[in-house]
Computed example of a mutant assay.
Amino acid sequence: MVVGFNNTAVKLQENVEEAWGNVETSYQRRNDLIGNLVNTVKGAADFEKSTLTAVVEARAKATSMNIDPSKITPAQLAEFNKVQGGLSGALKSLLVTVERYPDLKANQSFLKLQDELASTENQILTARTRFNEGAKVYNTHIKTFPNTIFAGWFGFEDKPYFSAVEGADKPVEVKF
């Protein structure tokens, strides 16, 4: 029984760590696209410098944060989520501001990048959802009796869940 618990917990923990890797891969793809998007916008428009600066700074913060998935804590996940939410907000501002530039909206490179960014945001959502699903299965396994006793013996700790960033319940306000 103890061996079965341990082996199952290890497999489930590996699934959670793989799911976390997929989350990081999705965010990395977004960060890579942002550089191209910013350069395209910079080259195609007489643009508000503050908006571009906000995106670049938010991207730098987002890429500087690393989390070990085997030791992830709720506080670390909340901070990661906050930093990534700041980047999402900066990107939304950039895309809303771009609406004022008809030449840029017609630029094929920009349109392709915008589509890729939208696709990447969907991949991030999927990766986060799968991480939460993996964490739920793992947490349920180590928290149910008698597994909770064995989890304490072997040092298995529950994994936190992704949640929405603060303010995500409010719609994005578009102003022209």
Rank of each mutant, 00 (worst) to 15 (best):
G4F: 01
F5R: 04
F5T: 02
N6G: 00
N7P: 03
V10P: 09
V10N: 08
K11G: 13
K11R: 15
Q13W: 06
Q13F: 07
E14P: 03
N15H: 11
V16W: 06
V16S: 12
E18Y: 06
A19R: 06
W20M: 15
G21Y: 05
G21M: 05
G21A: 10
V23W: 09
V23C: 01
E24N: 07
T25C: 04
T25E: 10
Y27N: 10
Y27T: 03
Q28C: 08
Q28E: 14
R29A: 15
R30I: 15
D32W: 04
L33F: 09
N36I: 11
N36W: 10
V41F: 03
V41P: 08
K42I: 06
K42Q: 12
A44N: 14
D46E: 05
S50A: 12
T53H: 00
A58L: 05
A60E: 08
S64K: 10
I67N: 00
S70F: 03
I72C: 04
T73V: 02
Q76C: 01
Q76T: 02
E79A: 06
E79V: 00
F80Y: 12
F80E: 04
N81C: 02
K82C: 00
G85I: 03
G85H: 01
G86S: 02
L87N: 04
L87W: 06
G89V: 05
A90F: 07
K92T: 12
S93I: 01
L95Q: 11
V96N: 05
V98H: 15
E99C: 11
R100K: 14
P102F: 08
D103W: 01
K105Y: 05
K105V: 11
K105W: 07
A106R: 09
N107E: 07
Q108P: 00
F110E: 05
L111T: 13
L111S: 14
K112T: 15
L113C: 06
L117V: 15
S119A: 15
T120R: 01
E121L: 07
Q123F: 09
I124T: 07
I124K: 06
A127H: 08
R128L: 08
T129Q: 10
N132Q: 12
N132P: 14
E133T: 15
A135V: 09
K136E: 14
Y138G: 14
N139F: 11
N139E: 09
H141S: 12
I142F: 08
I142Y: 03
K143R: 13
K143G: 13
T144D: 03
T144R: 08
T144N: 07
F145V: 10
P146H: 08
P146C: 06
P146V: 10
T148H: 11
I149P: 10
F150R: 02
A151E: 02
G152L: 08
G152Y: 06
F154P: 04
F154W: 07
F154H: 11
F156R: 10
K159A: 07
K159C: 04
P160R: 03
Y161D: 08
F162Y: 05
S163H: 02
A164L: 11
G167T: 09
G167P: 09
K170F: 02
V174T: 11
